[in-house]
Computed example of a mutant assay.
Amino acid sequence: MPDTDGPISYFTEDTSVETVLARMGEPENARLAEVMRSVIAHLHAVVKEVEPTYGEWMAAIRFLTETGQMCDAKRQEYILLSDVLGVSMLVDAINTRRPSGATENTVLGPFHVEGAPDLAMGDTISQDGQGEPLVVRGRVVDGDGTPVQGAVIDTWQTSHDGFYDVQQPEQPENNLRGIFRTGADGRFSYRSVKPSFYPIPDDGPVGQLLHGLGRGNIRPAHLHYIVSAPGFETVTTHIFVHDDPYLDSDAVFGVKQSLIREFVRHDDPDRAAEFGVANPFWTVETDFVLTPAA
């Protein structure tokens, strides 16, 4: 018989949480133990609420197994799952609480890559020239509107037909990706192409889940940014096209009102020549407002 100072807690339906938690010893990692106590309590509560059959429970196990098997160096199905359940946005919101007026975060997404090329202001990030020309301009400033010198702007986006370069072998490497650095005036400008709304991958278990729930898998058109500067919090964010039809149904819940920007179409050959783009073309302006690092 086990040596114990009190009555042994054996597993029952009613005492399942208490029994599992009682098996924990002195944790090597207090935070891990804190998190797992909450996970166990909520997981057991879900199981008791929905009362899954053996078949349903095994279907859940298969779903998680297939989600892991879908992951590789270019595809992170678990990030996609976190995104479509709104968990990525919730974790992001908790960790990036900022004062009013500061640029808000949104999801990183699964298609950021390290090593994008460093470019000069005014350069283009479009290596294949496909799509409607777009000129992006703006500033990086602090909460008082003072320009931030030396800010690093890492940007990436889809092609005109809604695919990232890592999704299409025919696109040049690092197509529609670039890194820019602000000068003393905090301003930035570059050329690109107007982004398109696009479907998130639905050929894996996450896509099957979305379809099973009657949900769409479309993300509204946007540009991605990571903006960083010494002494300031790094901002991971998007800007969204103002009239995109999917703003209210973003599959990963990434849209925030403050991140919607007006994309303006121009038919002006002289101005197009000044920017070095074909006519007609689009422009969008956006400022990134940084907050001091904690």
Rank of each mutant, 00 (worst) to 15 (best):
V35Y: 07
F281P: 02
P110D: 13
F232W: 08
R215F: 01
H222Y: 15
I79R: 01
E56P: 00
M121I: 11
R23E: 09
V140L: 13
D123K: 13
T106G: 07
M1N: 11
R75N: 00
S258Q: 14
S258A: 07
S159F: 00
G115V: 10
R98I: 03
V87C: 04
A273K: 14
E34M: 09
M36V: 08
A22P: 00
G212S: 14
P292V: 10
I226P: 00
N29H: 07
M58N: 08
A45I: 04
D3S: 11
F197Q: 09
F253Q: 13
R62K: 13
E26N: 12
A116G: 13
Y246C: 12
D203E: 06
R23F: 11
L43C: 02
H242F: 12
P172Q: 12
P169E: 13
A229T: 02
M121P: 12
Y198G: 11
R181S: 09
T158I: 05
R98T: 14
I125Q: 02
F63K: 06
E13H: 10
G162V: 01
H211R: 10
D92R: 09
F11N: 13
V252Y: 00
L247W: 01
S38F: 08
V113G: 05
Y198D: 08
P201G: 02
P201Y: 05
E56F: 02
D243V: 09
V166P: 00
N217R: 04
A59K: 15
S159T: 08
T291E: 12
Q257V: 10
V136I: 15
R191V: 14
A116Y: 01
G6A: 07
I226W: 04
T182W: 03
D165M: 07
L119K: 12
Q76T: 01
D83T: 04
P27F: 01
R31C: 12
R139C: 10
S82P: 06
F63I: 00
